[in-house]
Design a protein around this nucleic acid. Structure first.
Length: 277
DNA sequence: CTTTTGACCTGACAGC
DNA sequence: TGCTGTCAGGTCAAAA
């Protein structure tokens, strides 16, 4: 479900409620997520210093270490009152001293809750992550350099968290549309100006979605239960068979690297086309 | 090293 | 009303 804007929206939503609070208890109703849920006993009574984000991981910084939370495809975190009865798929509750509960719901259980002790300098899952797309380190030179001689489709390339984090199926599709690049072009064949446009487009879609509170397709809600509104801005994702807003050509629905992919065959070309930005 | 494929899981929806 | 197949905001590990 969540890509960078949804995870960041979640971070901003939960942070004011839990930051500076003590974790008094937790309830694990189903520890069987992607990996077994890890919440060590040293966390009892621990102070939560800050809530950060790295890629699609939320980092709950405690004095003794960090809880890593990944929302997978279908996860969401809500702030609820301790008395609110847990529903189906409410797998983990983190109970804070204010009777506030941070509740993880995840129907598909592709998410994770993992412990990263302060004694361990880098968690293996974070060690090889690529750059943050909204940081200065993310630029056309970087993208092009790492794409040299790579034949994977550019769409898969930008969805690879070892290259750049936070870009999933929605925003990859949208960014390639805005950049005028076909999703199935080999990453190594995208031109320098193509990567210039792509970097701008990725930043644009992520920042814009962030302003709108993320994208809600089926079930994403922020920590307060409000949906995101970015889906109203989608140009291609979920619009296969509909008409391109720019040129009225019928949008093509295909599969690129096992993922559903929609693009405009006229506005998106192998060597790039007029970028929309 | 890169690339491809399968795996993990539930739920919604289409078609018979 | 089933049943079956397909698809879904992710990403890791194994195989090629």
């Amino acid at each position: 479900m969540p890509e960078l804007p949804e995870v960041e929206t979640t971070r901003r939503g939960i942070s004011p409620h839990v930051r500076g609070r003590r974790l008094t208890a937790w309830i694990v109703r189903n520890a069987n997520l992607r990996w077994p849920v890890e919440i060590p006993n040293v966390l009892k009574g621990a102070l939560l210093d800050d809530v950060e984000r790295r890629g699609k991981y939320l980092l709950l910084r405690f004095e003794r270490g960090t809880l890593l939370i990944h929302l997978g495809m279908s996860g969401s975190l809500r702030i609820v009152d301790k008395e609110l009865a847990a529903g189906r798929h409410d797998h983990v509750d983190l109970v804070f001293d204010t009777s506030i509960v941070l509740r993880l719901n995840d129907p598909r259980r592709f998410g994770s809750v993992l412990w990263w002790p302060a004694s361990n300098p880098t968690h293996p899952l974070l060690a090889h992550l690529g750059v943050e797309p909204l940081s200065d380190a993310f630029d056309a030179h970087y993208l092009r350099a790492r794409a040299r001689n790579r034949r994977v489709a550019v769409k898969n390339y930008i969805m690879n968290a070892h290259i750049v984090v936070g870009v999933g199926n929605i925003y990859a599709s949208e960014a390639l549309y805005l950049a005028g690049i076909r999703p199935d072009v080999p990453a190594g064949q995208v031109t320098r100006s193509g990567y210039d446009a792509l970097v701008r487009a990725i930043r644009f879609v992520l920042e814009r979605s962030l302003r709108e509170g993320g994208t809600t397709l089926r079930d994403f809600v922020g920590s307060d239960g409000r949906p995101g509104y970015f889906q109203q801005q989608l140009n291609v994702y979920g619009r296969g068979g509909e008409v391109c807003r720019r040129c009225a050509t019928r949008l093509k629905s295909t599969r690129v690297g096992q993922r559903g992919t929609v693009f405009c065959p006229k506005c998106q070309r192998s060597r790039g086309f007029r970028p929309l930005m």
